[in-house]
Amino acid sequence: MKHLKKIVLLLAVVSLIFNVSCSKDDGDDVTTDLSELEFVFDQSNPPVDQTIISNLSSSGDANATQIASQLSIANLMTLYLGFFEETQGSIKTNTPIGTCGGDAVVYTYTASDGVESFTVAYQICETSDKYTFQVLTSQNGVDFNLLIYAEESKADLREGLMNIYAGDPTDVEAGSEIIIAYTWKENSDGSFDYTASNDDAGFLLSIKINADNSGTLSYRLDGVLFYEATWNSTGTAGTYTNYDSEGNEVASGNWPG
């Protein structure tokens, strides 16, 4: 029962991130109003247009289905953002947890059953060239563990990253290693570069989405190229190339075939 309560609490408290940053707070004065800051992605604005993924999935072509599966990995980021809905009762301060590198706003929420306590903190920090976003957890007053770390540049053409430290957001011992890392970058021609990777598993998914929603992707495992593909703006046609374990081309063509 206690475990269930902690899960419910985490789902509620981690909701501080991103959505709470969209609402004004009349509490402590903040040198920089970081509480107004919105993260670049949310469930209604994923990295890849879900319409393209749906079109690819429904085409019936094996290559289109594979492309859709790879693009869905990019949008898995939003599963973590799905826990982030505004929660009342948090404490807001400007004292960062650890080294923040600049101005900060920190929201924390703690619950206790009289024996155990559980705390979730959402921290937004600002430096001269970027914003950082962190979700940290602590049980029974021990040091905070990092669950999610993200950053976003201040440049007109934004770029950033997001590191996930636990597959299960209820894991209070997260923070030892990155289980999946995302990066993104906007380009002057309206295109968008995106990667998803895991060093331990050795995979790297690289995606370029053009301004018209057409795009290209490649999949590497332990540095070896295994697959490349393209799709048009509607996700109804494109090209593919398959490679063997040594990176030699074994098949290529157009889809649908």
Score class of each variant (00 low, 15 high):
residue 132 T to G: 01
residue 29 D to K: 11
residue 18 F to D: 14
residue 46 P to S: 06
residue 30 V to E: 15
residue 58 S to V: 15
residue 12 A to Q: 03
residue 24 K to A: 10
residue 129 D to K: 06
residue 27 G to L: 06
residue 52 I to Y: 06
residue 104 A to S: 15
residue 121 A to L: 08
residue 93 T to Y: 07
residue 23 S to D: 14
residue 26 D to G: 06
residue 35 S to C: 07
residue 85 E to N: 12
residue 40 V to W: 03
residue 114 G to Q: 12
residue 88 Q to L: 13
residue 100 C to T: 12
residue 52 I to L: 10
residue 79 L to W: 07
residue 135 V to F: 03
residue 104 A to N: 07
residue 22 C to E: 14
residue 146 L to V: 00
residue 85 E to L: 05
residue 127 T to R: 13
residue 92 K to Y: 11
residue 91 I to D: 01
residue 107 Y to N: 10
residue 57 S to R: 12
residue 60 G to T: 10
residue 145 N to E: 09
residue 123 Q to G: 02
residue 123 Q to R: 02
residue 145 N to W: 06
residue 44 S to K: 02
residue 106 V to R: 07
residue 55 N to F: 12
residue 17 I to F: 07
residue 147 L to F: 04
residue 125 C to M: 01
residue 25 D to R: 09
residue 22 C to H: 05
residue 30 V to S: 13
residue 11 L to D: 07
residue 41 F to C: 06
residue 47 P to L: 13
residue 36 E to V: 11
residue 35 S to Y: 15
residue 44 S to P: 01
residue 63 N to C: 11
residue 84 F to E: 12
residue 90 S to P: 00
residue 128 S to I: 06
residue 148 I to L: 14
residue 114 G to M: 07
residue 52 I to K: 04
residue 44 S to R: 01
residue 51 T to P: 04
residue 50 Q to P: 13
residue 20 V to W: 01
residue 74 A to D: 12
residue 138 S to M: 04
residue 67 I to V: 14
residue 147 L to G: 02
residue 136 L to A: 05
residue 112 S to N: 06
residue 30 V to H: 15
residue 59 S to C: 09
residue 20 V to K: 11
residue 96 P to V: 05
residue 138 S to I: 03
residue 139 Q to F: 05
residue 37 L to Y: 07
residue 121 A to K: 06
residue 143 D to P: 00
residue 103 D to N: 08
